[in-house]
Design a protein around this nucleic acid. Structure first.
Lengths: 319, 319
DNA sequence: TTGAAAGCGCTAACAC
DNA sequence: GTGTTAGCGCTTTCAA
């Protein structure tokens, strides 16, 4: 049997006699033969793999429950299309360079990029290689590249309005990660909702979407206005931290103050009381990003400007 | 210039004149040339990549704070050695097969496997390929393959003894994940510590290391013996759930009952009071597993029987 | 329907 | 020091 025929069997191509096919299949089984992917991808110019790049500082990577959901969503879609998802974490400059080489080297046919930052070097790499890509989230300098995300501003506005509808008089916000568009947009949505009632003194700014920053922010708010009775926390983790500060200060929730979060992450059900929050469709984001990359791989045109997924409000007991 | 010389420049080999080197480097820069990794790994028989396989059910993957730490530890070590870590998540039978093909195909030079289960198909794949591997954790049917882990039994015994030393009279355990060696070993360590005082009625068995299972377990314990005054929870997440049940039942912690956890995960500082617990060196486990694989890649003999990392007790306020 | 041969882009051995 | 050449293991013409 020639290599050609064997190749045809492995790739399920026509023009192979039944007997040759069974004979070859038996032989493959017997020898335990496995095709060498490196050789195959060299000649076929594709690897049947899609990269999943996570670019997060340590603390967030460990904390952020969204990443896991996005990853699982992407993997589910890619798996169904018989693509291998390979996730690459970037944690240093050295990582950035190595990942850039990895992408350049033809090890992946496309790439999903999570939490890219402003001026992210990956954006340039992807553009230079003309690699099919989809971003999750929307770094501001992302020209023309497809992305999937949520409308942080409209969602923040919606949940703030819902909080206002409960009759709170002094509503503040713990705004986090203002250097990212998600953080800035959530603050903008909050401002939109409050309109003329907006009071900058009632916005505490903290660097990260973390529990401890949430506690810090809440303490700051309490100090500035002890009469505060409503809080929009920029994320559930932040809200959970705020809850701790509120408990320490002897305030009851939702009695004395109503609090709402953002993400509907596993945090939301771990707090006492459970959080009213904006549902972030993490799994759906990953799945949509994967579909987007697969579409490009099939040569389909992608919608320009990206796609935004729905973010229903989940109302529980914290407000 | 011939391909040979160019190759020598790219691989930083000697016997290239300074002028040729600079000329070629300039040309590379100018054309934006990037070497094709598939071709390179085909001829060199190595890919300079190490797989990181996570085999977890959804819920755990999203919840388990250890995985992130292990992943970061492994990535740090591999990155320093200029290896690309590619993580592959297994979430279905289809994934298992595809990952097996991926490994067989020469896309990785070695592999780190996290949370393999009993009879895990990956064990066979790795053995058949004679792929340098390191397991994190210790599935029971892991013959001769290297692993890194912790001594769950000794650690559980140590923290239980510490809890006993606080003078508690009726000590119970919320035992989780008894189908895994970690779960079974933690129960065994608890039994060891209690010795003749061990009372099977004070062990609540729950399926998973989760918050909600912890709450369920604690409720069961309270029902069986309202006078219980000490609890060893099989993980911090379980302990956090138990704390909720205790609060609902009007018991104070550590006043009425002392509780200890396991993992020293981010949960430990999110509860009120903070948890006394066993520190699980997640980052170190990932780093050690990576070192182990790199050692094999360098042809060094690995210690048989695996290596166990230290698990210091972190004593806080929950007991 | 099958075999033979070319070539994917690279490295390594050898000749110059 | 540098150019030349032979593969790495596969798919894919093209002939038979």
């Amino acid at each position: 049997m020639s290599r050609g025929t064997v190749s045809r069997v492995i790739n399920d191509e026509p023009y192979v006699s039944a007997e040759a096919r069974t004979a070859i299949e038996a032989a493959i089984e017997k020898v335990g033969y496995v095709p060498n992917n490196a050789a195959r991808s060299l000649v076929m110019q594709r690897s049947q793999a899609v990269g999943f790049i996570v670019h997060e500082p340590h603390s967030l990577f460990l904390d952020d429950p969204n990443i896991g959901g996005i990853l699982l969503g992407a993997n589910t879609v890619l798996s169904r299309a018989d693509y291998q998802m390979v996730s690459l974490v970037i944690d240093s400059q050295r990582d950035t360079d190595r990942v850039a080489r990895y992408l350049s080297g033809g090890f992946v046919d496309g790439v999903i990029i999570v939490s890219a930052r402003h001026e992210d070097p990956m954006i340039r790499v992807v553009q230079r290689l003309a690699l099919p890509a989809a971003f999750v989230g929307h770094p501001p300098d992302l020209r023309q590249l497809p992305f999937v995300g949520i409308d942080n501003r409209a969602s923040a506005r919606a949940i703030t309005e819902r909080l206002m509808a409960t009759g709170r008089k002094r509503i503040g916000m713990i705004a986090a990660a203002l250097d990212r568009d998600s953080g800035a947009d959530r603050l903008a949505g909050f401002t939109d909702a409050l309109g003329p009632r907006f009071d900058p003194a009632l916005v505490a700014r903290v660097p990260l979407y973390t529990y401890s920053d949430g506690a810090d922010g809440m303490r700051a708010l309490l100090e500035r206005d002890p009469g505060i009775d409503g809080v929009f926390a920029a994320s559930d983790a932040v809200a959970a931290g705020a809850l701790e500060a509120l408990r320490d200060a002897g305030r009851s929730v939702p009695g004395d103050v109503g609090i709402v979060g953002f993400d509907d992450s596993s945090w939301a059900l771990r707090t006492q009381p459970h959080l009213s929050t904006v549902h972030q469709p993490a799994f759906g984001l990953g799945a949509a990003a994967a579909e987007c990359v697969l579409g490009q791989l099939r040569g389909e045109a992608q919608p320009v400007g990206g796609i935004l997924l729905d973010t229903p409000i989940v109302w529980r007991n914290s407000a």
